[in-house]
Design a binder for these strands. Structure first.
Lengths: 210, 210
DNA sequence: ACTATAACCGACAGCTAGTCGGTTGCGATA
DNA sequence: TATCGCAACCGACTAGCTGTCGGTTATAGT
């Protein structure tokens, strides 16, 4: 049976299926056949909407990073919220599984998904760094942070957060906590903030939620 | 014509060719046929020595990281050299193309080589972090560094160095210099060293070489 | 009702990684 | 020196993959 749909709708159907399969089986272990069968279309149709398998991956990643960046932007732009709180929330939005992260975030860190991980990291770094850097500069004006290299500090923080936090998942709770403490402390140092001030801000956020 | 060699010799021949091809064309774009033709062996022979294409990649990476780690260890163990100098040299040994790095280091950062990059990073991080952490702890005892989280700080530094420095290659000289300054400054902060002290140490090393 | 075209189809080509049963050189043993 | 066993080697073959292409059909606009 033949069903005709508008290009963008079909495109999104394909991306939905691809995102799920890439997220559960990984990019290399998902064949284009897996995708087109699950969508219920023929081979030619798939390649009518995407020029290659990698092009599909790019589409999936673009959708996700777009959503993540929008979320981060939204957090950062809330000028009535204290800077430290905005900073924390913006960083958390990237790692903790928000409603956006989906399954992908879990699988993205396995060696089989190296390409996905790298592309995602590239997009996120280049897209989110300027957003958070702006926030940081605001904090510098307010005298909360002190650094001559805000952008480079942000890069370092995001890169570390994006790479190491996932290996953390299968660690013991004590190690996890120590890692978090270390991370917070290192962030404070990089940003030139008063020691302990970020830790305090984070705890306040969690108390507020409880 | 049939030539018989000892297993380890053949294995190294294969690794030599694979390293060159992976380094110039990337892992995905190198077929097992490319390798076995260049070595001059049959298909079955290749799979007699390696159980899969990925197994070959692992072999290549293991050889390189092994050499890099040995070089770093050697630097760190020179107890008569000041700590700051050893630290600098140990980190530089990883990025600047030493005689070890070969061609691979240039290609390792392209998106097509994501798997290579990831495996290499994993090996390097897990292998070199403890080596440099030990050095850092020595510096803490001497009162040069101050941090409660030496290992995590080292992780952050190595990760950043390994990821960002290569993108740096195609930047303008001014940007490059600024990046280096920022990096040095951020390292000082993470290690809890006196501001400017690492920068001074680095300049002394370069002057000594000149 | 007609037509242009966007969306769709599926057979096919060309490549790939990995398997397997068979072969050969070589060192050990007697 | 004769022969025996095994490590090293061979290459045809399988199964599966991505991407192509000429042809087909639904639908929107006239």
């Amino acid at each position: 049976m033949r069903v005709v749909k508008e290009a963008e709708e079909r495109r999104n159907e394909i991306l939905d299926v691809a995102e799920e399969l890439f997220g559960t089986k990984g990019f290399d272990n998902t064949s284009t056949n897996d995708i087109l069968e699950k969508v219920g279309i023929a081979r030619g149709t798939l390649y009518y909407h995407f020029k290659s398998k990698e092009d599909i991956l790019d589409g999936v990643i673009e959708r996700i990073t777009g959503q993540l960046m929008a979320a981060a932007s939204q957090v950062v732009s809330q000028e009535e919220v204290p800077i430290l709180e905005r900073l924390t929330k913006a960083i958390l939005a990237l790692d903790v599984d928000t409603s956006i992260g989906h399954e992908i975030m879990n699988q993205v860190h396995k060696p089989q998904n190296a390409l996905m991980h790298q592309k995602m990291q590239e997009q996120l770094l280049s897209g989110i760094t300027p957003i958070i850097t702006r926030l940081l500069e605001e904090g510098i004006e307010q005298g909360i942070f002190h650094t001559d290299y805000p952008m480079e500090a942000v890069e370092m923080i995001l890169l570390y957060a994006n790479t190491v936090f996932d290996e953390l998942l299968e660690q013991s709770p004590e190690r996890k906590e120590r890692r978090m403490e270390a991370f917070v402390c290192n962030v404070e140092r990089l940003l030139g903030a008063e020691p302990g001030i970020l830790r305090k801000a984070i705890m306040e956020i969690f108390e507020k939620q409880a």
